[in-house]
């Protein structure tokens, strides 16, 4: 895919089961540096688990994860923390800290890394909030006071505030109306471009996938079954992907309605 150069993130044979339930069954994936990858797949297909494995939040049962050619299982705890310092993550449900005001959420990582004083953090938060289209006054609200769309934006602001060079977006537009979804997609594209970051986004939404992604990959039954250009989604010639893209009931993907 990336012809010779080391991919930013390389997954090989990544496997994870929770008890008897096999979630990842040998995931192989290359994510090109400075590009935007979207991962598609049905609910519960292990997309979030994949990201959590890369972040070190879940210990995979087997397989290789490399970032910049470095095997993550060989990192010391300090090196692992240093790597996480460079990764931003937007969680599927926001995961904003509801005990803290928005401005402290946004600048949490900068404050934790002591790159900024508490006094300067409010101004910095206002600046980052502006980048995601929110007024500075939002900074003084509590996350519980925000609408779903605003929470996503604050989550996005928190993920980019420390200017990471890898960013993960877990279903950034799920649960939003189509217009807000498009707005968030636009913000993501802008942010990623401005930071020159490598981005990995998870989505169910084809329009969103085409807007955000350079590359796309589809995960099904614990494996990557297709990778290709995001622009080709919908006409990939892969029966699984095309069924998913068109949302058809009939096709190779059979929903397990009963168990």
């Amino acid at each position: 895919m990336s012809g010779g150069t080391t991919p930013k993130i390389r997954l090989r044979g990544l496997a994870k089961a929770f008890g008897p339930k096999v979630v990842l069954d040998g995931v192989d994936l290359d994510i090109r540096a400075g590009h935007s990858m979207v991962i598609l797949g049905g609910s519960g297909s292990g997309k979030s688990v994949t990201l959590k494995c890369i972040l070190g939040l879940i210990q995979p049962d087997a397989g290789l994860i490399e970032v910049d050619g470095q095997d993550l299982s060989k990192l010391t705890r300090r090196e692992r923390e240093a790597l996480n310092d460079r990764i931003g993550m937007l969680f599927q449900n926001g995961a904003l800290f509801d005990s803290l005001p928005v401005w402290e959420n946004v600048c949490f990582k900068l404050l934790a890394q002591r790159r900024i004083t508490r006094r300067a953090a409010r101004d910095k938060a206002a600046e980052v909030l502006a980048q995601v289209g929110l007024a500075a006054s939002v900074g003084d609200l509590s996350p519980a006071e925000l609408s779903g769309g605003m929470q996503k934006r604050v989550g996005l602001a928190r993920a980019i505030a420390a200017e990471p060079d890898i960013i993960f977006f877990d279903e950034p537009t799920t649960g939003l109306d189509p217009i807000m979804g498009a707005v968030i997609d636009g913000l993501i594209v802008d942010c990623v471009k401005r930071l020159g970051a490598t981005a990995v986004s998870i989505t169910h939404d084809m329009a969103s996938a085409r807007r955000i992604g350079d590359d796309a990959a589809m995960i099904h039954k614990g494996k990557i079954v297709w990778t290709g250009a995001a622009a080709t989604l919908g006409a990939t010639g892969n029966a699984l992907v095309d069924q998913f893209a068109k949302g058809e009931r009939e096709g190779p993907i059979q929903m397990e309605l009963r168990r």
Binding site: K52, L57, D85, I87, A95, F108, A112
Partner: peptide, 16 residues
């Protein structure tokens, strides 16, 4: 609540 809403995982990704 922080555990089930991923806030604890979020801490880890926020250098904490």
């Amino acid at each position: 609540t922080m555990r089930v809403t991923d806030q604890i995982d979020a801490l880890t990704t926020l250098s904490t």
